[in-house]
């Protein structure tokens, strides 16, 4: 409602600083390339086309988000990219190498934390490093460094169950980044957190991303989160899961929570809302109103 009454610019309009930034991004080497990706699920009722004809590429140190209505295949897509699921057809290339199966060069942060409960916070962060063959002492030193970065050094010896949700997710991020992945996949990482923790975690993630050379692929259903964090946003459509639009976010960096009400931000949000929930669908929805009890003071 509010966004209609304002004179909003087009979400395609970019300031010169933003367009210069995108130009530079385009010139960076391609990190991840997705080619004709299709995923079919066999069900008793027939095939379901979860993903169809997905093509995009992500450049180095870019922050790309995926949004879409529920059931559009966001999670299927990120799981295929991380190598946890296999596509029916199509290929995923990381720096030109074709990817098959999961690997340490593609880190992943899940919504449900997935910390190993039998390991202390420090040992959790050391897990990937030790598997890589780093000696125990080196791994420990590096793990402590990463815990310092996410601000949890004093919880190094605690068990995951003793931490709050936000802290657990910070450990999970530290654990993934300690492995120095080429690209970090995050599957609705803040979905289970309360609103306040979520916004501070978003700021945290931006700060970490600015300091580390890592490309981020982020799945969310929160439009504000997607705009606030990303360079580009892939909008998926459901049935079949296809790319609806690829939006370049015109909000300049560095980002702050103060930008939530800027015209660029609102314009982008309005466009995303239109894409995710087409307006004609909204008009058809008539919810019958039946008042069962009357208070009697005629206050609506």
């Amino acid at each position: 409602m509010m966004s209609n009454s304002l004179e909003l610019p087009s979400y395609l309009e970019q300031s010169s600083a933003v367009s210069a930034r995108f130009e530079k991004l385009q010139n960076r080497p391609v990190k991840l390339k997705v080619e004709d990706l299709t995923k079919k699920f066999d069900t008793p009722k027939g095939d379901i086309l979860a993903l169809n004809n997905i093509n995009f590429q992500i450049h180095r140190r870019e922050f790309v988000s995926v949004i879409g209505p529920s059931g559009c295949g966001k999670t299927t897509l990120i799981r295929i990219l991380a190598g946890l699921d296999f596509p029916t057809s199509g290929n995923v290339f990381l720096e030109g190498r074709r990817m098959e199966g999961p690997g340490a060069e593609r880190g992943m942060v899940f919504q449900d934390y997935t910390l190993f409960p039998w390991l202390s916070v420090k040992k959790n962060v050391m897990f990937g490093l030790e598997i890589k063959g780093l000696g125990k002492l080196n791994a420990e030193a590096e793990a402590m460094e990463w815990l310092e970065i996410v601000g949890l050094a004093k919880f190094a010896d605690a068990y995951p169950e003793q931490l709050s949700g936000g802290m657990k997710q910070r450990v999970a991020i530290a654990r993934s980044l300690a492995n120095r992945p080429e690209i970090l996949f995050l599957d609705e990482p803040f979905g289970a957190l309360d609103a306040q923790t979520r916004s501070s975690m978003q700021a945290y993630l931006l700060k970490i991303w600015q300091n580390v050379d890592v490309t981020v692929f982020f799945v969310t259903h929160d439009l504000d989160e997607a705009i606030y964090l990303s360079d580009r946003i892939i909008v998926l459509r459901a049935n079949p899961g296809e790319i609806d639009e690829l939006i370049e976010v015109p909000v300049p960096r560095p980002r702050s929570s103060g930008q939530f009400l800027t015209p660029e931000f609102l314009a982008t949000k309005k466009r995303l809302e239109e894409l995710i929930r087409p307006p004609e669908l909204e008009q058809n929805e008539v919810i019958p109103m039946i008042r069962l009890t009357e208070v009697g003071d005629e206050v609506e």
Partner: peptide, 26 residues
């Protein structure tokens, strides 16, 4: 939880390591 195994996979654990370092202690 399958997600623990998947998390370990994305951290580079191979099959043997998944058995000894995730499934058994888990």
């Amino acid at each position: 939880e399958n997600s623990l195994i998947e998390a370990a996979q994305t951290l580079g654990a191979n099959r043997r390591q998944l058995l000894t370092r995730i499934i058994l202690p888990g």
